[in-house]
């Protein structure tokens, strides 16, 4: 009896994981449905966010999905400010356009900057921890790096806004809140995570293999390049992709810095917005189609990070021998 209950409970708990993931998928999709119906796939290349247009004259990209032109009357305009800015005259029926292009680009670019910044340093740290430092130093520095990884991301955001961004601004000019500073702070945040898991991958290289190379007269660098990297290649790439996945979905480290404005960044040091930040800053007050559009973004983000992580897991980090 107890036995059966215990087993059933454990089975149900395990199955809950699947149920949860499926529910996340379904409920995000459902909540995004109005926006998906309204804007279709063209959403991802639509540059406007919250622009009022007359119903008969849809913005270019909506044309792609002309079948779905059974547009309902604009939802009683939720955002009075936008309504004012849109300046539509009361007679023509208006609707509000939401497009995901800018936050998607912002997400990708900030992640790209973060990776470009973090990757070389993280590899250096991993090599240092796995191969160069004497054991004691490696342990101490390793713990320090892991502690850095444990610091809540909101702290990175605050530190980034008040201390790191001003420094970057002094060095390269532009705005303190910008794609560049957001990307760099994001890079600092994923740096320890990437370093720690890359180190773990490198450490799987058997000692004898390294010793055989040393026994042929290889230098440390040659052992790292010819033995450790090829041997733990899959694990290292997997670690990098996991870090990439984390950067794509990170909210708080970016929220303080990216500026949260829906405009394409004209330069590295101008502000923009990313998907998580768009959600963080607009979700609370949004209603109607805007909420749905934000869910559409969340759904896209979920799909993207799901795919990225799956690639890392299935191609590179297969555990079972």
């Amino acid at each position: 009896m107890m036995e059966k209950l215990f087993k059933t409970l454990s089975f149900m708990s395990a199955t809950l994981v699947m149920v949860l993931l499926a529910s996340i998928f379904i409920s995000l999709f459902n909540s995004a449905k109005p926006a998906i119906d309204e804007f279709g796939i063209g959403f991802i290349k639509e540059k406007e966010w919250g622009k009022e247009v007359p119903i008969d004259n849809p913005v270019s990209t909506v044309v792609d999905t002309t079948e779905q032109k059974k547009v309902e009357p604009a939802p009683a305009s939720d955002d009075s400010l936008e309504a004012l800015l849109g300046g539509g005259n009361d007679d023509t029926p208006m609707k509000t356009i939401y497009g995901g292009f800018i936050p998607i680009v912002g997400t990708l670019l900030s992640t790209l900057i973060a990776m470009a910044f973090a990757l070389p340093i993280a590899m250096g740290i991993a090599v240092f921890l796995a191969e160069i430092a004497p054991k004691k130093i490696s342990n101490v520095v390793g713990i320090a790096i892991e502690l850095l990884a444990a610091i809540p991301s909101i702290i990175f955001g605050m530190w980034g806004l008040f201390y790191f961004a001003p420094l970057v601004q002094e060095l390269v000019g532009g705005y303190q809140v910008s794609l560049l500073t957001a990307g760099l702070v994001l890079g600092v945040m994923i740096l320890p995570f990437m370093a720690a898991i890359t180190r773990d991958s490198m450490k799987t290289t058997p000692d004898v293999l390294k010793e055989s190379a040393y026994a042929l007269g290889a230098t440390k660098f040659e052992v790292i390049r010819d033995i450790i990297f090829p041997y733990s290649k899959a694990g290292i790439i997997g670690s990098i992709i996991l870090a990439l996945g984390r950067a794509l979905g990170e909210t708080m480290a970016v929220a303080f810095l990216i500026g949260s404005v829906f405009s394409l960044p004209s330069a590295l040091n101008s502000p923009t917005v990313s998907i998580p930040v768009a959600m963080a800053n607009s979700f609370g007050e949004a209603t109607g189609m805007k909420t749905s559009a934000l869910f559409y973004l969340a759904f896209l983000l979920f799909i993207i990070s799901f795919s990225v992580i799956s690639v890392a897991k299935f191609y590179f980090l297969r555990k079972d021998k």
Partner: peptide, 27 residues
């Protein structure tokens, strides 16, 4: 089944936390 659940759990562990927030908002 075990491998499947383990993979899903690993994926869920790396899911963006803001998306979890949106999910709970909806449900």
């Amino acid at each position: 089944y075990v491998r499947f659940i383990r993979d899903l759990s690993d994926i869920m562990m790396s899911a963006p936390s803001i998306v979890i927030g949106a999910f709970v908002y909806a449900i």
